[in-house]
Amino acid sequence: MAFKWRKWNNILHRDIGYLAVGLTIIYAISGIAVNHIDQWNPNYVISQETIKIHIPENAKTGRIIDETTRQLNIEVPVESSFRPEPGRIRIFYTNQYTVDLNTKSGIGTIERVKERFLLYDFNFLHLNYAKKLWTYAADVYAVALLFLAVSGLFVLKGRKGFKGRGKWLTAIGIILPVIFLIIYK
């Protein structure tokens, strides 16, 4: 009995395709997000607000931190603080807020950092922040994509298959990036 290669090609294309759906969606969304990194921050929503704290005269670092925390009604713990230059203090609150304050005028900013919902995690996977085992998982996914691309060429026979319109569409898909390469490189 002859080996039915097209049947197996289509079965593998279908099932590997199902497996690749999740990660393809994640990579595609993240790809768009990081493609525009010059225009926005794809990982975090950072909000900044000007603040004015009343700081008692000659207050030491501990007192400045206490007053700032109290006056801003911040309920998360203080992680640490830092003096970047005389007359300035930066107070770090666990995972969320950073206060930058002029200790003489009491004027400063409070910055709140929040991971973008889902997008941070999508970028985490797509840009391989994790490294370690995920590197190999992503390699397997890349090989799967390669297989899907090639096997996809042979799913259909006839006029709508590769030998029909498929070869022209495939050629356009290859020529397009080449044109951009010629123009921009």
Binding site: N43, I46, Y93, Q96
Partner: peptide
Amino acid sequence: DGEIVFPLQSRGKL
């Protein structure tokens, strides 16, 4: 770029 990514929430940590 991309080889190591330090999280922004690590500010203040040791």
